[in-house]
């Protein structure tokens, strides 16, 4: 379980003015949860994510990973093994000449025994559907494949938690879909805990819980349905509903009454079918 207690963070601007980017944040993330964090640019969501594996050490408050408190450099490596991070740009994360080398790099760094290494590499690559591409260099991979490999390199370390900071924002539509499918699969089949930070409202509908941030505060959380029910509030903090929900709202304004609020186009067409 990841426990965040009264976490605060501020930074100083050039003119010495302090800006609070996180304000008394409290979150519990249980093993096996699929949690999405949304918020506009500058809402504090990336700062929050960087606290989860010690890239930022809490100034105030606590971040506890199972039984370890993120405090200083003493336990940072163990925390980073437990909490794997994947970032936006797949090109910045690729260090090896091939997928195999890329996954091996992380394992070598933790002194993983070389006799078991190949087995672990194949295991990790297969988890993200890249088992057949081990010898491929990065320039021969699509954006989606690169990002899946980055997830594979993290999985090879057998983390307990996977944190992804806008992993799809630089990908083409197919790449986006591939990455989201891999995450759903890892969550369902392996019970991997997923923390997904994203701007794409259509991606968060698959999570168990959505956390909405604004100006360093958690302003809303709940299931996707609960969260997107607060249409006015989301609008006030410059967030949009998923497209299917926007369309449904327009139809309601045109006098069509639906039974349920929807978040996906499939569900919307189902509702329309009921009225047809």
């Amino acid at each position: 379980m990841i426990k965040i207690i009264d976490l605060e963070h501020e930074y100083k601007k050039d003119n010495n003015e302090s800006i609070k980017t996180l304000n008394k944040i409290n979150i519990d993330i249980k093993k096996g949860d699929f949690v999405s964090i949304i918020g506009h640019n500058g809402s504090g969501k990336s700062t929050l994510a960087k606290h989860l594996n010690g890239l930022i050490i809490p100034q105030k408050g606590e971040v506890i990973i199972d039984d370890i408190t993120v405090t200083d450099d003493n336990n940072i490596w163990e925390i980073r093994r437990r909490v794997g991070m994947v970032f936006q740009n797949p090109d910045n994360q690729f260090v090896g000449g091939t997928i195999e080398e890329d996954i091996a790099f992380g394992l070598e760094n933790i002194g993983f025994p070389s006799k078991d290494m190949m087995e672990r590499i194949i295991y990790a690559a297969s988890k993200v559907g890249m088992g057949d591409y081990l010898k491929r260099p990065p320039h021969k991979l699509s954006g989606g494949q690169k990002q899946r490999s980055a997830i594979g390199s993290v999985l090879a370390m057998e983390p307990d938690y996977l944190v992804l900071d806008e992993p799809t924002s630089m990908l083409d539509p197919k790449g986006r879909k591939e990455v989201i499918e891999v995450l759903r699969e890892l969550n369902k089949k392996d019970n991997m805990t997923i923390v997904l930070i994203t701007h794409f409202m259509d991606e968060v509908v698959y999570s168990d819980r959505v956390i909405v941030m604004d100006q360093g505060n958690i302003v809303l959380q709940g299931s996707p349905k609960e969260v997107f029910h607060n249409r006015e509030m989301l609008k006030n903090i410059n967030l949009e509903l998923p497209k299917a929900a926007i369309l449904q709202k327009m139809l309601e304004e045109k006098g069509i009454n639906f039974k349920d609020e929807v978040l996906t186009k499939e569900d919307l067409v189902e509702e329309i079918w009921q009225l047809f």
Binding site: Q88, E166, S169, M170, H199, N238, L239, E240
Partner: peptide, 13 residues
Amino acid sequence: DEPTAGLDPKSKK
């Protein structure tokens, strides 16, 4: 080239 990548929905629009 992808001028709105990485922006939130409102900034994008």
